[in-house]
Amino acid sequence: MQAVILERALNYLLETHQIDVSLLDGKVVHFSLQDLPIEVGFVCTNTRIFVTTDTSTIADVNIKLKASVFLALLQGEDLTKLLREDKIIIHGDVKTAQLLVDLLQQVDIDFEEELSKYTGDIVAHQVGKLAKKFKSSDNPLTSIKDKITTLLIRPKVQ
């Protein structure tokens, strides 16, 4: 189900931002986040992206990174710099990886604005705040767990 949602979201972005994926035509990219249970394959073909959870397919490139590094990439961080700092592991065709990163960096989306269309401004803003905290942490899952634990042990007294 996550793959279907991700696929629809990606193709929606491609369409609304008029991003051309033809340079990646026929390429298969395996992508995994080290700190979240996300491992998917992207197949770029016929002017769209298919997302698959079947990672047994032979890929042109395998990319492994943390969620925070992924968000940094989206915000324009240099791939070569991240590679040098060992924040991203790439096996296979680095050129394909670079093309994918270039493509992702073309996406300039105001997530809060998009979300507010469905949830209203208040919920969208709160989700946005959460996402910013999540992004600033090196280990987001642990950070969320810590925050919940703190809240449960020492609830704020009004």
């Binding site: 279907v4 696929e7 629809r8 193709n11 369409e15 769209r48 298919f50």
Partner: peptide, 10 residues
């Protein structure tokens, strides 16, 4: 409905 959602047709 799920089939259509999965189709990636545009």
């Amino acid at each position: 409905h799920y089939t259509i959602a999965t189709s990636n047709v545009k």
